[in-house]
Design a binder for these strands. Structure first.
Lengths: 111, 111
DNA sequence: GCATTATTTCTATATTTATGGAAATATAGA
DNA sequence: TCTATATTTCCATAAATATAGAAATAATGC
């Protein structure tokens, strides 16, 4: 992860429709949702939705999987994890005792 | 935290100069840095920097504190925490055993 | 009040991004 | 092959955003 990469990811989330799409898919979990389901749940015209799905997918935040006539989109949890890690990197110069919760975000045990 | 609010925060980070400013301040910790220090560390013209500091501050991601002729900017850790929480809300429909690390981000003990 | 330093506002220009209708493309089943 | 459904591409228009020089504002100490 580097600055340019992170900017692309953040920009892909920094738009109302796209953020709602992403959150919906975070909640849907790894199996994701078909594009049409997303369109109807969020009430977005399909051409507009397609534009936003492309943005998110190109950025790397969504995975797309074709299944027959449907395309299932799901959140790329690993990429999102990387982004959060990048944002909190070396928080407070690495001082462990630093108060902000942000500084402890990393402390979920390493894999 | 709601969608519009989160979009404002994400948009404020979705720009190379601003992301670098924010990360620099996350690393600097609660005491922050003076605007001029930020300008020289990141090599950004002061008028451009001022524009970006305003964006970040208006969004709520930075705090500004005047000290004599200097203005110290620092990261608003609590706002960032809220944003991360919003992004991961109800991850995988709340299923605790869900694999992605993202889903466990919240599990830093509550305050 | 004057000089110095820190920061912001103003301004114009250039660039990027969002929107949604209409048409095109893809997939599957009869 | 024909039809129905799912999704994307094309397009024009509208709106938002980034850049940095020059001028303005603020704070300090003499």
């Amino acid at each position: 992860m580097n600055t340019k990469n992170a900017v692309t990811l953040l920009a892909s989330l920094a738009q109302e429709a796209r953020l709602e799409i992403f959150r919906l898919l975070v909640q849907a979990g790894p199996s994701g949702l078909a594009a049409g389901d997303i369109a109807s749940k969020l009430n977005i015209p399909t051409s507009t939705l397609s534009f936003h799905l492309k943005e998110l997918t190109h950025a790397g935040l969504l995975n797309a999987a074709q299944a027959g006539r449907f395309i299932y989109y799901s959140a790329a949890f690993n990429i999102m994890d990387d982004l959060l890690g990048f944002l909190t990197e070396n928080c407070c110069q690495g001082v462990q005792s630093c108060e902000p919760k942000l500084c402890n975000t990393q402390s979920n045990e390493k894999e």
